[in-house]
């Protein structure tokens, strides 16, 4: 046993630790399942009257996916609080921008549609 171990160690400078990949594959399955659910909803919920409700589900699931990618894969969840807020607060301002300009777009569309009536 000892002879075998010595020949192996001759090739490897220093000890290489065992891979710890459980959390990576867990995050992977979470992302796959959320994406599958999104597809299922896209095809199951086709009633035009439920459009707003369906889109809200999509947005919630997208933000959930973003949370797992940024938090686990980009490791932000495990950084210091100050770094987390430095990234999150400016990003949160985008939400306001989206809401403001989407409202603006609807208003422009309404105005154009009723311009001559």
């Amino acid at each position: 046993m000892s002879a075998h171990a010595t020949t192996e160690h001759a090739y490897v400078p220093g000890e290489i630790a065992k891979p710890n990949t459980g959390w990576i594959w867990k995050t992977f399955w979470v992302l796959v399942i959320i994406t599958a659910v999104e597809f299922a909803i896209a095809f199951a919920m086709t009633n035009p009257e439920l459009r707003t409700f369906r889109n809200s589900i999509f947005i919630v699931l997208t933000i959930l996916k973003a949370f797992f990618i940024v938090g686990e894969f980009m490791h932000l969840k495990h950084e210091t609080k100050s770094l987390i807020w430095t990234i999150l607060i400016p990003t949160a301002l985008l939400v306001w921008l989206v809401v403001a300009l989407v409202t603006e777009g609807s208003s422009i569309g309404e105005t154009l549609a009723h311009m001559f009536s």
Partner: peptide, 17 residues
Amino acid sequence: AFTFGAFLTAYGMIRHK
């Protein structure tokens, strides 16, 4: 993220128009 945010915001605005 702001660059892509601007793109997607423009998409949202134009689509709602």
